[in-house]
Design a protein around this nucleic acid. Structure first.
Length: 596
DNA sequence: GTAGGGTTAG
């Protein structure tokens, strides 16, 4: 029989070891060994515990605490119930961890159970219990319950406010979060981090970056957790200069480029168009895991590479990392972008067979697209109709895109009709369908589509392009009339660029603009597409190499051809990011092989 | 004893 004091020491050591292992498990490979070790350790501790004749509350609290942050937080309840059965009364330490376990599980009914237990044992007024409850309700998204606990509290600290702020962000109420943030008397890094991640996770990337700047203005130094969201926001914005600045901040402040931050930096460089730097950072990372590899593979795919992402995928597997569903999304995208239909199908089939990963909607989407692009419309259609999951609008959208590329009006009309029913508010479907009709000279249908959009109040979003010059972002919109230098830009296009690229074989393609404007304006309007304006502007002044442009919509066929010719005639490298991917233009070649 | 971090088809 083991002495209780010795056991207490054992549990302490065990818990510390367990925490160390869970950290180690993240940074080292192969993972399976450490997981097994972890499991064995827990098992060992439990076996030791069962040897004790009269375990006291301290021991149970240690287990409840240990489990609350483990992979199976529900075990906290297991030990809680065991303690009760043993006739032990839980104390003020027990409840916060029991409630925390429910938050970890994101299980509100269980959390309410925990809340009930705290009331039953008279700890409802305990400050730590209250903070834990606010946290738990905020985490499960029940902001009303969180607020109700919060409002009944006698005192607050930075943790209470921060938990409430996180809760507001979680339920999409950034305004209330901001209000509380401005009002609270004390803020620390976690508070700032909660605000920044709150914005970033709700796609308010500019706000996230603004908060980071405000944090610096306060004289605070961000840590890894903060900067991760800042860098990921830069990635989403496609703001390379801003992202580079954040990366420099990491280096200057000696922040560790750990697994998570490293992944964010790799993703940022890829999404901001500097894929070479993404690869370089990736190669230099000391710690790598499957998500890190996935970020690189997805980045390479985004840039139109095919062999490279597949090579990294095989390297990843060789090193013993187990691909996850999103890894396959990235790999299949790479095949799709490169038009590697057969290779894609092979990998798609291997997902379940060799890796036990059940294909999800996005994986099917990755297959419909290349099949359609390759002209195998029948197979693509069959694929959609025979899917075990109900196809969603992006999948039908991929099929519609294929109909547009291959001028298939019959299938296009059928698919378009389905899409208009599924998403009557989305302008893209009307535009694509009308373009399909326009290509087939079915002008009556084009008019019908136009009218339908008008009747339903659907508007096509305005196309815009962004370029960063000396750290300042310049915006150009289609048919721009408000840009202070618009006249010069237009003259640049008309007098210099257009004649030069015409000599190189450029013929304006007006088919796609049918939808936007009247016949006689067609060619003129085409020249006012935002990326052409941006290029004309940047070529006018000293052009950087490469010229980087970020577009909100997809690059149209005409702009694509024009950009390709500009890169050749003016001897400049252009990197254009549209809503889907990157296009690299250098000396008249392009990375996407006209697959876009 | 209580709060914050990466990847994702079209």
């Amino acid at each position: 029989m083991i002495d209780e004091q010795i056991f207490v020491q054992l549990v302490k050591i065990g818990l510390i070891l367990q925490e160390c292992c869970s950290n180690l498990a993240v940074i080292q490979s192969p993972h399976c060994f450490l997981h097994r070790f972890n499991h064995q350790l827990a098992h060992y501790a439990i076996r030791v515990a069962s040897q004790i004749q009269n375990p006291n509350l301290f021991i149970y609290n240690a287990f409840i605490r240990g489990c609350s942050t483990s992979e199976n937080p529900e075990n906290s309840f297991h030990y809680y119930i065991k303690a009760l059965r043993f006739g032990l009364l839980p104390d003020n330490i027990t409840h916060p961890f029991l409630v925390k376990a429910c938050a970890q599980l994101e299980n509100e009914p269980m959390g309410m159970h925990g809340h009930g237990q705290a009331i039953k044992h008279g700890f409802e007024q305990d400050f730590y219990v209250q903070n834990s409850l606010v946290h738990m309700y905020a985490t499960v998204g029940d902001i009303n319950a969180a607020r109700s606990v919060f409002q009944r509290m006698c005192r607050f600290d930075v943790v209470s406010w921060t938990c409430m702020i996180a809760g507001y962000h979680r339920c999409g109420d950034a305004e209330s979060a901001r209000e509380l943030f401005d009002r609270m008397p004390e803020r620390n890094l976690v508070t700032w981090s909660t605000m920044i991640s709150g914005y970033a996770h709700k796609n308010c990337f500019e706000k996230a970056v603004e908060m980071f700047e405000a944090l610096q203005a306060e004289g605070l130094v961000a840590n890894e957790a903060v900067i991760v969201d800042v860098i990921s926001s830069c990635a989403h914005l496609g703001a390379l200069a801003m992202g580079e600045k954040a990366h420099e901040y990491v280096i200057r402040n000696n922040l560790s480029l750990n697994l998570i931050l490293g992944t964010a930096v790799v993703g940022m460089y890829a999404r901001c168009g500097n894929i070479e730097k993404a690869v370089k950072v990736f190669e230099q990372l000391r710690e790598k895991d499957v998500l890190c590899w996935t970020a690189l593979i997805a980045g390479l795919a985004m840039h139109g590479y095919a062999e490279k992402p597949l090579w990294y995928f095989s390297q990843m597997e060789k090193k013993g990392f187990v691909p996850r569903d999103i890894t396959f999304t990235a790999v299949l995208t790479a095949c799709s972008r490169a038009g590697m239909v057969e290779r894609g199908l092979e990998i798609f089939e291997s997902m379940k067979r060799d890796h036990g990963v059940e294909p999800r909607l996005e994986h099917y989407g990755c297959m419909v697209d290349p099949l359609g692009r390759a002209g195998k419309l029948g197979e693509a259609e069959k694929f959609v109709l025979e899917m075990p999951v109900k196809p969603n609008s992006p999948i039908w959208g991929a099929l519609l895109g294929a109909c547009w590329i291959h001028k298939n009006v019959e299938v296009g009309e059928m698919v378009g009709k389905t899409l208009l029913e599924m998403q009557p508010e989305y302008s893209g479907h009307y535009v694509l369908l009308s373009n399909i009709c326009a290509r087939a000279n079915k002008w009556k249908d084009v008019t019908v589509m136009r009218q339908m959009m008008k009747d339903r109040g659907v508007r096509k979003p305005t196309g815009y392009s962004l370029i960063e010059i000396d750290g300042k972002v310049h915006e150009f919109t289609i048919g721009d009339k408000i840009h202070p230098e618009i006249e010069k830009i237009e003259r640049m296009w008309e007098d210099i660029i257009l004649p030069k690229i015409k000599l190189a074989g450029y013929v304006g393609n007006t088919a796609e603009t049918m939808f936007d404007i009247d016949e006689e304006e067609k060619e003129g309007a085409l020249h006012r597409h935002s990326e052409k304006l941006a290029i004309a502007y940047i070529i006018k002044i000293w052009p950087p190499t490469p010229i980087r442009i970020v577009k909100n919509l997809r690059v149209c066929e005409d702009c694509h051809t024009a950009t390709k010719l500009i890169s050749m005639v003016f001897q400049v490298e252009l990197i254009v990011r549209d809503r889907n991917r990157f296009h690299h233009f250098k000396e008249g070649t392009r990375s996407c092989m006209d697959y876009w």
